[in-house]
């Protein structure tokens, strides 16, 4: 590598200036805002008041549980389906490339449009899913997929089981994220050396043994990367909630990022919104750090 004084910084300058203006300054400003309270237009320092108000609120607890429900369902479905799909595509079918391209289409669509379209399908009268949804096994009278508020809870303070709208939201999100996860896992599987698999087969290993003992450990770092991508997307994605359920029915699909939107831009309480942002950002940063550490360790082991 060459060494130079000014040139690398000159090359970096435009990008860094844009990032500083649009990401760094707003980020720091939010931290500042989280310690301020606004009273009749006058801002004053309020310490950790905003954080206390947010953390003590019932909406925060409910949204946290909704977020957990969403992310757990989203991850389990996306990961298992993605792994299966990647295994299928990895069999070097003649049309694998074409299949992957077709399967990938949902991923390039906009969150908001996906939400709108899925909402269209769920219309209780005219939506094309309503005949399916009104089947007795779903227990949704009048096919009220997006309007039925759950009344039963296992534990009073925990919104579980989730509302039908939440389950539908998870399906929509899985549909959109599945292609990306499949692509990641497939790319990792294709780096597994063929000779190793062949020699294992010659030695008498079954397909399942090959997968468990060779493919899976080699793919594991990518699985972890995919996992963190999913969690980050689930923590921060708000577009689909926005257009599909609007947080409802009741507040049953109000995840943390949507709560942030409500506090910040409906209630216009920037101090509390900033406090919640700082909390979400802290979780994100922890996840990113962990992901980096795991993917580094992964590439050290297998590279």
């Amino acid at each position: 590598m060459r060494t130079s004084r000014a040139l690398p910084f000159l090359l970096l300058a435009p990008a860094l200036i844009m990032i500083a203006l649009v990401q760094l300054y707003p980020g720091l400003y939010t931290v500042f805002l989280s310690t301020q309270q606004s009273n009749a237009g006058i801002q004053s320092f309020s310490g950790t008041d905003n954080f206390q108000v947010v953390f003590d609120s019932e909406a925060f607890m409910e949204s946290s549980w909704h977020t957990v429900t969403f992310i757990v369902g989203y991850i389990i479905l996306t990961m298992s389906l993605g792994l299966g799909l990647a295994l299928l595509l990895n069999r070097k079918l003649r049309l694998s490339g074409a299949y992957l391209a077709l399967v990938f289409i949902p991923w390039v669509l906009s969150d908001v449009i996906v939400g709108l379209v899925w909402k269209l399908f769920a219309d209780p009268d005219t939506g094309i899913l309503s005949p399916l949804v009104s089947l007795p096994i779903f227990g949704l009278e009048g096919s009220a997929l997006l309007t039925k508020v759950p009344t039963f809870r296992f534990i009073d303070s925990i919104p579980f089981p989730p509302s039908p709208a939440m389950i539908y939201l998870i399906f929509a999100a899985v549909w959109k994220a599945l292609p990306f996860i499949t692509l990641l896992l497939l790319a990792a599987m294709q780096t597994v050396p063929k000779e190793v698999l062949e020699s294992a087969q010659i030695d008498g290993a079954s397909g399942r043994q090959c997968f468990l003992a060779i493919t899976f450990p080699l793919v594991l770092p990518s699985v972890v990367v995919a996992l963190f991508n999913l969690i980050l997307g689930g923590m921060n994605g708000v577009g689909m909630v926005f257009s599909l359920t609007g947080g409802g029915p009741g507040s049953s699909t109000e995840v943390l990022s949507y709560l942030l939107y409500t506090i910040g831009f409906s209630e216009l309480d920037f101090g509390r919104a900033a406090a919640l942002s700082v909390f979400i950002a802290a979780i994100n940063l922890t996840l990113i750090t962990l992901a980096l550490r795991v993917s580094r360790r992964g590439s050290e082991n297998y590279a």
Partner: peptide, 14 residues
């Protein structure tokens, strides 16, 4: 990389 951890909505307030 760390800055990408700031939620978009947070940036938008500022």
């Amino acid at each position: 990389l760390a800055l990408t951890g700031i939620p978009l909505l947070t940036n938008l307030i500022a």
